[in-house]
Design a protein around this nucleic acid. Sequence first.
DNA 1: TAGCTTGTTCACATTGAGTTTACAATTGTG
DNA 2: CACAATTGTAAACTCAATGTGAACAAGCTA
Lengths: 225, 225
Amino acid sequence: MNKILVVDDERHIRELIKIFLEPEGFRFIEAADGVEALSVLDTEKIDLAIIDILMPKMDGYSLCKEIREYYDLPVLMVTAKSETRDKVAGFDLGADDYLTKPFDPQELVARVKALMRRYEINYSGHIEIGSVRMDRKAYTVTVAGNEPATWPMKEFELLFTLAGSPGRTFSREALIESIWGFDFEGNERTLDVHIGRLRDKLPEGKSGIRIRTIRGVGYRLETAS
Amino acid sequence: MNKILVVDDERHIRELIKIFLEPEGFRFIEAADGVEALSVLDTEKIDLAIIDILMPKMDGYSLCKEIREYYDLPVLMVTAKSETRDKVAGFDLGADDYLTKPFDPQELVARVKALMRRYEINYSGHIEIGSVRMDRKAYTVTVAGNEPATWPMKEFELLFTLAGSPGRTFSREALIESIWGFDFEGNERTLDVHIGRLRDKLPEGKSGIRIRTIRGVGYRLETAS
DNA sequence: TAGCTTGTTCACATTGAGTTTACAATTGTG
DNA sequence: CACAATTGTAAACTCAATGTGAACAAGCTA
């Protein structure tokens, strides 16, 4: 699914943005300032950034400039007042769109989706692969025309991650971090167990997909040949 | 992209390192001594550090120790002479690899890449040579239009290393270090066996490449004439 | 409370990648 | 050529990585 980076020094604003966009099926990474944001961009694949202009350490303008230079993703700028001067500066630095606080939730959602579309990012509240359809909003999985079923969270997230980049090999660490977070301290076997359950629920013949073990590396989802 | 911290009091050495590594697509942050380096590490997300041992204010040893304690990134130590004592001290303090001035540019590049790979830093990912295509993300190898195949890790890494610098002769030690790490304690023959398996999988006519033995030195991958 | 569902852990089975072995083949050198 | 060093390779072996059934724990619901 799509990951959005929210950069704002006020935690409460970040929360607000998340609350509005979460129901649309986005995932979030937060950063409190530009420096933090850049370090996130270096490690995570981000699809879109929502950036406040006024921040400590590195302001939104500089951040935007950096992003333009080294990355390729749409930037939505947010600021407290709709000062024309700021607007111009924002666009000059390559922000793709602009929004002023306080913003209308629906407008935020609309603009984000529009940007995603414009950048041709497969906006994915849902994924289709093989004969499997996943709907992140409803948390349901449909296999080969069966009734949509609500799956356990971990299983859903795991499949969603794998199915989000079919053909790509995910290291065990990457998967664990993606599903459980970087500070997972549990048992190694847990991942295998969930993979096993996914395999049970997705017989190759029915689902048209297969989860392949890459020994010593991790797992990969591929379409059944 | 990946950021490398270069710590050396001689500006000209820093420049040199940059010149060699820049074409590989890395970004750089420089520091003239250990203290400066630490302050950089505090603000920037660094993927790898190249550190000279002899420096004012805080020498490479102390810096390395600090890094080990508070950060998690591979360290490549550089020094003027290959004194055995220094080498030991370097490894003792947790340097991941070691290089002596004057160094061979290609060796520098190879070691940096190897470290990145070993640390699972996502270093750019696909290689095409002859009719062979390697995709590091998917962990697959495609030979002459066949289906992409999943190869065992060691074979993949070995070929990836060789194919990453076609025409360059890798010493056996360099290859072993690159694939198994500098502390490999196994049998000499292991490398040959894997080379043999690669050759089986890459018939010269089909693949358009050949792995040549350089007796007394190591191996080299070249495009079939 | 009992009875589900979900997530995790454990113990044990299984497998195959990676390594070693043992010997053959090749190359370089005096 | 003789012979020593180096490399190639088939086959056996080994063990860590993975698969799996079952049990357990926690939370929710009826």
